[in-house]
Simulated assay, not measured.
Amino acid sequence: MNARVRKAIFPVGGLGTRFLPATKAMPKEMLPVVDKPLIQYAVEEAREAGIEEFIFVTGRGKASIEDHFDRSQELEDTLSGRGKTEELQLIADLLAAPGKVCYTRQQEPLGLGHAVWCARNLVGNEPFAVLLADDLVQADTPCLKQMVEAHAPIGGNLVAVMDVPKEHTKRYGILDVVEDNGSLAKAKGLVEKPDPEVAPSTLSIIGRYILQPEVFDELERQERGAGNEIQLTDAMARTIDRIPFHGLRFSGTRFDCGSKAGFLEANIAFALAREDLGNDMADILRRYAPGT
């Protein structure tokens, strides 16, 4: 049995420029899908997958993320005084055990690989997960939990993957596949954002990873890749000759909440799935899009 995945990194240092002006004073990870910020969905997914320690790689202007996962005595006292027990439970559920949440700063926006590398001393010498809050997955079994279960017997590096149209390969890290049973795909390499005509496949990585600590050794080289940034996929690719690498086709629907259209779609999909909002949302859609 391979080592259990206990720690997760949440890179939340990005500027969120695609959502300006909304993100001028608010972290993009705090944008709400219905009534819950994106970063909370990611943390809850990690918790349901058995993650015990939560590591946030932040930057300037991200204090509201720390506040969100901390106690607010004034709010708790107000809710308690008004008998708002359901709301009290909602905010109590946000809290991790003392000492299980930590924050470190990424002083420069040098890419995802650099953000993950900033957490190296907090992770240590054990496998770890990485979750990007921009990628929101709606699934009966949380995406990371599916990955943890798949990872236990095979070990190595594991990423969540999905097939994309060939013309979209230049948006993603793409696997070079040698074996594929329809669920797990074993890769001999991966390429960051290849042009469609040279892409080795259409199997793309989304923002969920389970990685071995050897990836930090590769990130330590601080080599720049696509976009002149330190790419996590490049570091993973350099370990494939000695660490097994697989992609898991997860069950569920992924929403790209880094784009405005994807963010709006996620709000609609999650509202429709809610017992308290589904009927109202369906009525709204019919009003604005007759015939739906």
Rank of each mutant, 00 (worst) to 15 (best):
C118A: 15
S80G: 12
D135M: 04
G83R: 07
L79V: 05
Q107E: 15
G99Y: 07
L122W: 13
V123E: 09
E86R: 13
L88C: 01
I91F: 09
L132C: 14
A133F: 05
E126W: 05
L95I: 02
L132I: 13
I91W: 03
L95Y: 15
L110C: 04
C102D: 09
D93F: 13
L75Y: 07
P109H: 07
G111F: 03
L136R: 07
D77I: 03
G111D: 03
D134N: 11
L110A: 01
K100G: 01
L110E: 11
P98T: 00
D134M: 05
G81Q: 12
L122N: 08
S80L: 12
L136I: 11
G99T: 11
L90P: 03
G81A: 08
A133N: 07
C118K: 15
G113Y: 04
G99D: 06
K100E: 03
G81N: 02
K100Q: 11
A97Q: 12
G81D: 01
V101W: 04
T78N: 00
H114S: 13
G124E: 04
F128E: 13
E87T: 05
A133K: 02
L79Y: 06
E126H: 05
D134F: 05
P127N: 05
A92L: 07
A97R: 10
P127L: 13
V130D: 04
V101E: 03
A97P: 05
D77V: 04
L90K: 11
A129S: 12
A115G: 07
A96T: 09
I91V: 14
L90I: 06
H114P: 01
V130H: 01
D93M: 07
G99H: 10
L112I: 10
H114Y: 12
L136S: 04
E87I: 07
R82M: 14
Q106A: 15
E126I: 08
N121K: 14
C118N: 14
L122G: 11
G124T: 09
R120N: 13
H114D: 14
E76F: 11
P109N: 01
A129N: 12
L88M: 06
V101C: 09
D77S: 08
E108P: 11
L132E: 05
D134S: 15
T85W: 09
V101I: 12
L95S: 04
E86G: 08
P98E: 06
L75D: 06
D134T: 14
T78G: 04
Q106W: 02
L95H: 12
T104S: 08
Q107R: 15
V116P: 14
S80P: 06
E86M: 13
A119G: 10
L136T: 11
G81I: 00
G81P: 05
L95K: 07
G81Y: 09
L88V: 01
A133S: 15
D93N: 15
A115W: 02
G111L: 05
V123I: 14
T104D: 02
